[in-house]
Each structure stands twice: as structure tokens, then as C-alpha cells.
Design a protein around this nucleic acid. Structure first.
Lengths: 140, 140
DNA sequence: GTAGGTGCAAAGAGTTTGCATACGC
DNA sequence: GCGTATGCAAACTCTTTGCACCTAC
């Protein structure tokens, strides 16, 4: 599995460093969004001198080549990061526990054409977030 | 028109002050989103000693009672504010000139039920933003 | 008169940058 | 060895807070 990330970095002309591999593994392990600070805190166990700015710089580089994706959600001021998925996805965000759930069906698909006709606006991408309460938090 | 805002403030048990009226008028005049700083800069003409923290505190109070709405969009780090509209709306955001256009038809309406069935997630609100290029910027 | 609003300065959170050193290739 | 990555400290941006004073009601 390490080999996979090593190749991924090489493919994008990024140097393979221990720090970057750790970050990618941590993101994979959690399979959810992590803030730069959360990632930093988590990885200090493995590299006591890891700097927060290194995390930010790595996130920047990885976002640029598309290996990871940043998201800014309403329930947090921090930018969160996750491994990019092939599939187009949106998010369910629990207002109580802040858990983030991906869902892959996109109710907005094809809607860009309607908008283009109506507003002369060329839609390139979109962001849909549903806020509410998850299974657990509803029953608590 | 001033009277309208005065009443609006009173209705929500907020004191009617010159600063707050100015802010609401400025937001109305622009009919678009303004950041706290943009609002502050704009109003310094009318009140030379207006403090940025006063703007932030006013925004907080006005958001709390629903007179204005905050939005965090991907093209700006700052929180932007606008007068609340009765109608449910989403946004088209130009990636070049950063203009924001409201649109009122909601393609996600009723979609919450599908999500609730599928994920046991109770949807309370949602946010849809379409990013792309406006009329003008497409032809430039 | 009293509670809430305001200005100013300082603090705080999140993020970015400059620079010297270390490391991948 | 060259160029990128890293650690550290400092700077920067946006926002919040403490406190004394002021103003709406």
C-alpha cells in the first residue's frame, strides 16, 4: 500500500518523503477529513519534529496535483483535507457530531445546462452540502 | 426606507443605532455580499471613527436574528454578508470576477427525503454553489 | 438610569513566508 | 551536487475579546 502512494507522488513529480507518506496514510486510515492541525497532532507520534508548516506545504502541493481535496465546511473554520476520490461526491454534515458522510448520487447533474440557458453562466463545478443530523445524533 | 430597517431592528429587540442603519443601507444598496472589511471601508466615509470590531459585532447580532445571512464561499477567505431574502436561494459564483448571482429555483428540493431513507440522515438545510464563468467573463 | 452598543488596543485562530539546513534523486 | 522539502520563528489575515466610555430607550 505504501508503494501505491510512492508511485502516486512520483507520477506527479513530487519527491517521496517520509512526511508525505505518513500524511497520505493518515488520511487513508481515517477515511475522512482532517485539518492540518489534526493531521499534525496525529503524526507527531511518528515524527516528533514534524512542523505544522510542513503539513500546510504538503497539503498545498498535494491539492495542486489533485491527490487530495480541500473542503471548507460551515461547521469548521479550518480547511479540511481528504484523499481525492474518483467519484464525484457531495457531503452530509452532522450539525451535532460534525461527522461527514459522502454520498455519490448527484441531484444537480445536468443542471448546469439549465443555468447556462437562463443566466448565460458557464458552470464548471459545484458544491452541494446537506446539513442535518446523523443516525446516532437523532436518537440522542 | 429607513423606517423599514428601524422597525426591523426594533422587532428583534436590537437597538436602533446610526451604525447599524448605515450597515443595512449599505448592504441593500449593493444588493450583494460584502465582507466586514469592505463594509467598514465603505462606511468610514460616513462615520470616521467606525471600528471594524463594531462591524463584526453588528454582523453577529444581525445574523443571529436572521436579518442578514453569512456565506463562506471558496473564492474568498472572508465571511461575506447580505440582507436575508425571503426566498430560498443558491449562488452562481464567477471564478474570474467573483461576482455572485442568486438563483431561486432549487434542484435539491425534496431530495432530503431520499437521503433520509438511504442514510438515516435528517437533512435540515443545504447549500448549493455553482462555480464557473459569468456572461461577461466568458467573452473576455 | 440601565442595558446594550461602540472605539480602541490587544489577543486569538488559522495560515503563510523567509531563511538556513537536510534530504531525495 | 542540484533542487526540493523541512524546521523554526516570525509575519500575516481574519476575527474575537476586554475594558472604559457612550447612547438608545
Amino acid at each position: 500500500m505504501q508503494t501505491y502512494f510512492q508511485n502516486l507522488l512520483k507520477e506527479h513529480d513530487l519527491k517521496v518523503t517520509k512526511n508525505r507518506l505518513m500524511m497520505l496514510e493518515a488520511l487513508q486510515e481515517d477515511d475522512t477529513f482532517l485539518s492540518a492541525e489534526a493531521l499534525h497532532k496525529k503524526l507527531l507520534k511518528h515524527n516528533k519534529t514534524l512542523s505544522l508548516s510542513t503539513v500546510y506545504r504538503a497539503m498545498e502541493a498535494l491539492v495542486e496535483v489533485g491527490i487530495i481535496s480541500p473542503v471548507n465546511i460551515e461547521t469548521s473554520k479550518e480547511t479540511l483535507y481528504e484523499l481525492s476520490h474518483d467519484e464525484h461526491a457531495h457531503h452530509l454534515i452532522c450539525l451535532k457530531c460534525h461527522k461527514i458522510i459522502h454520498f455519490h448520487h448527484c441531484p444537480v447533474q445536468g443542471y448546469g445546462q439549465t443555468i447556462e440557458k437562463q443566466y448565460g453562466f458557464k458552470v464548471k463545478e459545484h458544491k452541494l452540502e446537506l446539513y442535518g443530523y446523523c443516525d446516532k445524533c437523532q436518537n440522542a
